[in-house]
Amino acid sequence: MMGLISYLVFFITIASILAIAVLGLNLQWGNTGLFNGGVVAFFGAGAYGTLLLGGDPQSDHIGGFDLFYPLALLGGAVAAGVLAWVVGRLTLHLRHDYFAIATFGVAVTFENVMRNAEGLSGGAKGLRGFTRPLEAFVNNGFTYNVLFLLVVTSLLVCTYLFLERLIRSPYGRLLRAIREDEIAACSLGKKPDRIRLTAFITGSCIVGLAGGLYATFYAFVSPQDVLPTLTFQLWAMLIVGGAGNNRGAIFGTFLIWGAWSASGWGLSRFAPVEVQLYTGTMQFILIGLVIVGMLLWRPQGLFPERLVVSQSGCKSK
């Protein structure tokens, strides 16, 4: 029983971290219509940024500034935002499928740089030497995980509330206006490019925050954490949950990550010994089938976007 609780605490922690990232992605795609194919680069920027700023001093690469943890986490998010600013300035004017591939390329390049630039990132062996905040004071692994879970879930709730307020604000209305009809928005004197860029940066900062939490929880990050698989996973969560709907995004994350874990667990538990060697492959087939099936059955996601009325006075929309 205790084991189950311990596992659930762990599972919810990871799922909540991923949910924060999916919320950031939802701001970009669901609300603004930006097809970010390189989410993982911003996730990685947050993760590497946090560990470099908050880690112990290292001899073989820069970083290890041992900053006060919240500052390091913030620094990670800012690093993701800066990356988003550069990428956004270069690519936001592209058509969406070109934009998707261009950002995908950014993510591949990011992984590649992290893998090769040993002086910056520790190279392929990854970045370690990070002491989890307050771990010395909490001796029990389980208690620590519970505390960490509390921090992560409260950050998730904060992010959710922030985004809900944001999309109900005039700014949120503007985002959707640009998504639906850019020219109409222009005719009203709005600057779509600028607004898209701020949405892209804000979303990326949120994704970066998730990356920072992720690296903190593992006290480690390596190029293997920033492979395109993660982009795919995050997108699958958003699509299944329902793009444009923050609750859907969170629900989708828990569902997909749950399915991912449960299928591995189930196969290892119930498949016969020799077949176990093929479970990994079968798991991928199952996941593929779930995604295709979901899109065939309910392409708008489990929680479709609700049209939000921004002000109570505008009921006659």
Binding site: W29, F232, W235, A236, I239, F284, I287, G288, I291, L295
Partner: peptide
């Protein structure tokens, strides 16, 4: 029934299935 992005995602799923089969 769906939009363009659904197709992109379905293609990811299809790729995963084909590769592993």
């Amino acid at each position: 029934k769906g939009d363009e992005l659904s197709m992109v995602f379905a293609s990811f799923g299809v790729a995963m299935i084909i590769r592993n089969v």
